[in-house]
Design a protein around this nucleic acid. Structure first.
Lengths: 155, 155
DNA sequence: TTCAAAACCACCCTAAAGGATGACTGAAAA
DNA sequence: TTTTCAGTCATCCTTTAGGGTGGTTTTGAA
């Protein structure tokens, strides 16, 4: 566990160590220059340079990159918000079950599949669709779908 | 922004600072006992601290944020002007004639009516629709219509 | 309680749709 | 020139859809 902690903080430790190392490098440099005595300004200058560089390096390494997010909205075709036309629905006296059948027809299901989905027999679906066609005054499911969409009975 | 960055990296900075603090505590103690004489080291240390801070400040100020682009698909009512999706059309290798047949199917015409409208035989329409179903990967005209609408091949 | 829809199911028959296969033509690309 | 492909048409066969009719049960409203 202690090892894992070390591993997790290896960056921190590394930076700390390098900072310490630099300070001792400074000591050494100081010693070199103190002997020459007059070079203290040069010493200070290089010190400033080195540590400015260190600061910059630290900041670049440590700081998470600031992320600027640009959001682009792309328009995509979709029928946004369908509102059932209940007025038409009741005007044509279309029952709930018939509407259900129409909806499933529009998705592309065959009668047998619709029957399975609604847990009734194929014959029942045939009856419903026949009645639906009468009420919609059409004679094919494709027409029923087209008219249903036009009248906002289905999305 | 720089403040937020500082906040985010407060652990790293804290570690660095506390290490530095310890070193200077040592120095101070040394100074207490050895007196004066070490003034230059204190000077160098402060210099280092100040310029490290300057470097960090510079880096934070100057670094450009990396740009991240997010594309959001925004739904838009499809009925406002139909735009044929020619990309899909060519991707699925659907021919002009097949598209025509699909359009007429969607209106609710039966194959014989489509044949009459296009001045070809019923068999030709059957061939076209069969090929269409293969390309759309469906097996009924209602499914073809549904998928065609979804892919913006028909209005 | 009675009555009218709605929902359910069945049988029969015809029409339409769909799958598989083969073939011919003309135009455009390789 | 050969190849490729859209477009045309046909035949055979199966599946699905649709029209017509008749029936039972459930349910909600009068």
């Amino acid at each position: 566990m202690a090892f894992a902690t070390l591993k997790r903080n290896k960056h921190n430790i590394l930076y700390g160590l390098s900072l310490a190392g630099l300070l001792y490098l400074l000591k050494w440099l100081e010693w070199r220059f103190v002997i020459v005595d007059h070079a203290i300004e040069i010493f200070a200058g290089s010190l400033a340079l080195i540590f400015t560089g260190l600061g910059i390096w630290l900041a670049l390494k440590l700081v998470k990159p600031t992320v600027k997010t640009i959001i682009i909205e792309k328009e995509v075709a979709a029928s946004l918000g369908f509102q059932l036309n209940e007025a038409e629905l009741s005007r044509l006296r279309i029952s709930n079950r018939e509407l259900e059948v129409l909806q499933l027809m529009a998705i592309g299901f065959k009668n047998q599949e619709i029957a399975d989905k609604l847990f009734v027999s194929l014959n029942t679906i045939k009856t419903h669709s026949s009645n639906l066609f009468l009420k919609l005054e059409v004679e094919r499911r494709t027409q029923a779908i087209e008219k249903g969409k036009r009248l906002s009975l289905i999305p």
